[in-house]
Design a protein around this nucleic acid. Structure first.
Lengths: 115, 115
DNA sequence: GTGTCGTACTACGTCTGTCGTACTATGTCT
DNA sequence: AGACATAGTACGACAGACGTAGTACGACAC
C-alpha cells in the first residue's frame, strides 16, 4: 500500500479540517475520526498536528471555539467545539482554487500525466 | 492569479527536480529555468531550495554530481551537473504512484471534487 | 571603462508545520 | 482489575523552505 507522506499533505491539513467544519461545528477527536472515514482510512491526521492546527487557525480567525456538552445522551461532560468563521470560509475557497493550479503544475512533472 | 504556496509543493520539489533529470543530466540554473518553463511560469523554485535539494538528494544517492564544461561554444568555464541514479529513478517512480493516492485523498476534502 | 544584466552558485540563520513521546482523565466493557 | 475508546495538553526536535547577502564571471550598452 502506498503511504502518503506528511510533507505532501502539509499545507492542506488546515483545508481538510476546514472542509469538515464547513458542514457543521465539530471537535478534535470527532474531526480526526471523520478524516479517517472520508479518506477511507488512507489518511489519519496526528493528534498533535490537529490540535496545533486549531490553535493556529483560531489565532488567524478562521475558526472559533466554544465549549458544549457531549451528545444529548451524555451526562455533564464538556468538549471544545470549533466553528468555521467567514474568514475561514473564504480561506477554504481560496485553497480549493489554489488546488487546481497546484495539481496542474505537479502533474506536468509526474510520469504519464503531463501533456 | 492564484499563488501556489510552498507548503503544498513541499514534498514534491525533489520529485520535480528528478523528473527533469530523468530526461538528461542538468545543472542548477538550467533546472530552475526548465521548471519555470514547463509550469508555464506558474512555479519558480527558489535557489536555496534547489541547491539544498541537490545536497540532500546526493546524500540519499538519488543523484550524482560531476563537473563539466558549459555548452560546446563555451570557453573553459565549468558547471556542476547532476545525473539521476537508479535509486533516484526508483524514488521518482514511487512518488508518481504516491501522487495518485494523495490527490485522491485531498480531493475528497476539496469543494466540487468529492464523490 | 563603468554599470547593469544574466549566469551560476554558496553561506548562514530563521521560521513553520509536523511529529515523537509522554502524560492526564473519564467512562465502558470484560 | 485492566484494557480500550474518548478527549485532550505539554514539550521538544526536526526537516524543508525561505530571506538575505555575497561572490564571480562574461556580455552588452552607453
Amino acid at each position: 500500500m502506498v503511504e502518503i507522506s506528511s510533507d505532501v499533505i502539509r499545507g492542506y491539513n488546515d483545508t481538510i479540517i476546514l472542509s469538515i467544519l464547513m458542514k457543521e461545528p465539530s471537535y478534535g477527536y470527532g474531526i480526526s475520526r471523520q478524516i479517517k472515514e472520508i479518506s477511507d482510512g488512507k489518511y489519519a491526521i496526528k493528534e498533535t498536528t490537529l490540535y496545533s492546527a486549531f490553535t493556529r487557525m483560531e489565532k488567524n480567525r478562521y475558526i472559533e471555539s466554544f465549549i458544549a456538552d457531549e451528545d444529548p445522551k451524555g451526562n455533564g461532560k464538556k468538549r471544545t467545539y470549533y466553528r468555521i468563521t467567514d474568514e475561514g470560509k473564504a480561506y477554504y475557497g481560496t485553497k480549493c482554487e489554489e488546488w487546481d493550479v497546484t495539481r496542474e503544475v505537479i502533474e506536468k512533472f509526474i510520469a504519464d500525466k503531463g501533456e
